[in-house]
Simulated scan of single mutants.
Amino acid sequence: MHKNAIFLLLALSCQQIQAELTAADCRSLGFIKAQLMCSSCDKLDDFGLDTIKPQCKQCCTLDQQPAAQRTYAKAILEVCTCKFRAYPQIQAFIQSGRPAKFPNLQIKYVRGLDPVVKLLDASGKVQETLSITKWNTDTVEEFFETHLAKDGVGKSSYSVVEDADGDDDEDYLRTNRI
């Protein structure tokens, strides 16, 4: 009887490990399924986070298989110019010639917002929003090279939206720009 109970528990735990969660389920748990490698889940024990390891394993991509490289039709980089001092790497990216490489990139200045990237599908619907506060200039460029659709290569028609929240207070952005 004791062996049967152990076998049943083992079978249930194997079944739980094999079950995969959807991207939305993983996001609600705090994981980004497309970017989470299973080797990262194995390191959770080192930090005393073994309680979330089963959920991590359900959301991860095997290291031997490359993570799905999803591309998006358009991206919007939103940032407040008042935060440039806190995020000089984002300021450097925006003020360099790098955004011109991405015709489907739009830069919006939104008052008080930490830097984020919104990734949109062809119909203009936001598919994913990522915080880029810890990214360096090269990482931002590499991300756009990897995840933005390549149609329109050679054009340099990225756009900058001065006031994304619709306020008529244009002087704020002009005086706040570095």
Results as ranks from 00 to 15, higher is better:
L10Q: 07
S13L: 07
S28K: 15
V153H: 13
G48Y: 11
N176S: 03
M1G: 12
D50E: 13
F93Y: 14
T71G: 01
D165F: 10
R111Y: 09
Q15M: 10
V117M: 10
V140M: 14
A100E: 08
A75Q: 04
K101T: 08
A23Y: 04
A92K: 12
D121Y: 09
S13I: 02
K101R: 08
D121W: 10
D45A: 08
S123A: 12
G97L: 03
K3I: 12
Q95T: 10
I132R: 00
L49R: 06
A149T: 12
K83G: 04
Q35N: 08
C82L: 07
I76V: 14
L21E: 14
S131P: 00
A92S: 13
V140N: 00
A68P: 11
Q16E: 04
C82F: 02
I52P: 00
E162V: 04
T133C: 08
I76N: 11
Y109K: 06
P88D: 11
D167P: 00
Y158A: 11
K43C: 03
Q65F: 14
Q106K: 07
F102A: 02
C56L: 00
V126E: 14
L49K: 07
R98M: 07
D114I: 07
Y72W: 11
F144P: 10
G112W: 06
Q127L: 03
A23R: 09
G97V: 04
T129D: 02
K83C: 09
C14E: 12
D138H: 04
N136W: 12
A86G: 01
Q91H: 14
L119H: 02
C26W: 09
C26L: 12
L173K: 06
I52N: 01
Y158P: 10
D138Y: 06
S156L: 02
S157Q: 10
T139E: 15
V79L: 11
R174C: 08
C14G: 11
A34F: 15
A73Y: 05
R85S: 14
S39F: 08
G124N: 11
M37Y: 15
R111C: 04
A149S: 15
E141A: 15
I17T: 07
Q58M: 09
C80A: 13
Y172L: 05
H2P: 06
C14H: 12
Q15S: 14
Q106W: 01
A149G: 06
A75P: 04
D25S: 15
K53S: 05
L119R: 02
L120F: 10
L49Y: 03
C56N: 03
I52Q: 07
A34G: 08
A23L: 02
K155P: 02
E145G: 14
N104F: 01
V161T: 06
Y172W: 11
K74F: 09
K43W: 00
Y72K: 06
